[in-house]
Write a protein that binds this DNA or RNA. Structure first.
Lengths: 135, 135
DNA sequence: ACATCACTTGCATGCGCATGCATTAGTTTC
DNA sequence: GAAACTAATGCATGCGCATGCAAGTGATGT
């Protein structure tokens, strides 16, 4: 895995993420980070996670997650809940509406992922890489 | 390759790219896109590429590349050159100083890539993925 | 003339870094 | 032991930056 191969992987990543983002934005009005946060919350116990946990799980830093939670909150997809035993802590909790949006968006996401990978596999430059990832 | 695997690949990508960016910024005062543009220009014929070519090669928008070229230009690493036979076109051309910076930065980039991948390989969650990429 | 192409520019968005505020934990002092 | 200081932790906010999209500018071709 040299710089050349990493470049190709980056190209693949960029393309696929762009397609995923476009599909989610178009069909559900949410971004990629929003979707991933909802997905993590949906499978968490009680649908809630501490901010920093969420940050680690979706690979964003703490401040980005704070703003992300604000966006989700103002869309009614999550709410904030104070941690009872440590009043510094805040839970981000998925709402019923958030679960609905996630349920509806999941097939969009999965489908767009398959489509994007298929398209990349047909690309002469990226095809072999995709094939090796799928094996 | 389902959503779960794609998530892991994204996590790996994010981590490694961050390390690469940090290393380049710290040791050479340039960002990742700047480095990649220099690398592409350095190996192009006469060290020059049309804007759109460069955009395709590094996976950025054409408008982003226009701004990227501006940044490189104001740092003296590239210059713009009008295309003689098609006056709509603009070449971005690497300067001697740009080649120097690229030569100096390349080992930093390659070393940071190796280090980041080694670190990820040691991670229980990402290790298998890195191993499969390296095979 | 009109459409197209290559690039630039205005604008909005999402991100990371540095910082600040509130809370908690640990340590010293009396 | 209680009060007071000093970190350390969890999150929010100000700021700047790179990016994408959409509209604009100028050159080319038909």
């Amino acid at each position: 895995m040299d710089a050349e191969h990493w470049d190709r992987l980056g190209a693949l990543h960029t393309r696929v993420e762009q397609e995923l983002a476009k599909a989610l934005q178009q069909h559900h009005g949410i971004g990629l980070s929003e979707y991933r946060a909802l997905a993590r919350l949906a499978r968490a116990d009680d649908g809630e996670l501490r901010m920093q946990e969420l940050a680690d799980l979706i690979g964003l830093n703490q401040s980005s997650v704070s703003r992300l939670a604000s966006r989700l909150e103002s869309s009614g997809l999550t709410r904030r809940d104070l941690c009872p035993d440590d009043r510094r802590g805040v839970y981000s909790v998925i709402t019923d509406q958030g679960r609905d949006v996630h349920e509806q968006a999941r097939p969009t996401y999965d489908g767009a992922l398959r489509a994007a990978l298929d398209a990349a596999a047909a690309d002469g430059h990226l095809g072999p890489l995709v094939a090796s990832l799928r094996s």
